[in-house]
Amino acid sequence: MLFLANALGQSHLTIGTAGILALLGYAVVFLGLILLMAVVMIIGKIFIARDKKASAAQAAAVPTAAPVEVPKPVAPGTAGELKLHDVEPKTAAMLMAIVADKMGKPLNELRFISIKEVK
């Protein structure tokens, strides 16, 4: 690639031309990303529909006489609202998982109030 600026690039634009080009550029970015959004949405919808179809087919394949599996009761409570002081969310999540593992209790039965880095 060489130095590419064309005649327009080498010129000094008037206020009007600069304004129109700025608006046009912004509009082109919006247009490009709106069209891309539409494409991504269509792909997403296709995949969601495919997943639904697959799960429906899976459900239909289950014999009706099969014993209904009783879901395990969900442990009450949540981790609650947690205050982080100088701690990254990722680090906090790891710490909570380690504590739960060491205590042998599900994470949603524990209540973390705050996590603070000791300096």
């Binding site: 690039g9 304004g19 912004y26 990303l33």
Partner: peptide, 24 residues
């Protein structure tokens, strides 16, 4: 859409730079 909206500064700075005498 937010990625597009956040390009506003690109085109505003372009406009201001032309006002300050820079080439296009």
């Amino acid at each position: 859409l937010l990625g597009a909206a956040a390009q506003m500064g690109v085109f505003f700075a372009f406009f201001c730079a032309t006002l300050l005498g820079f080439t296009a």
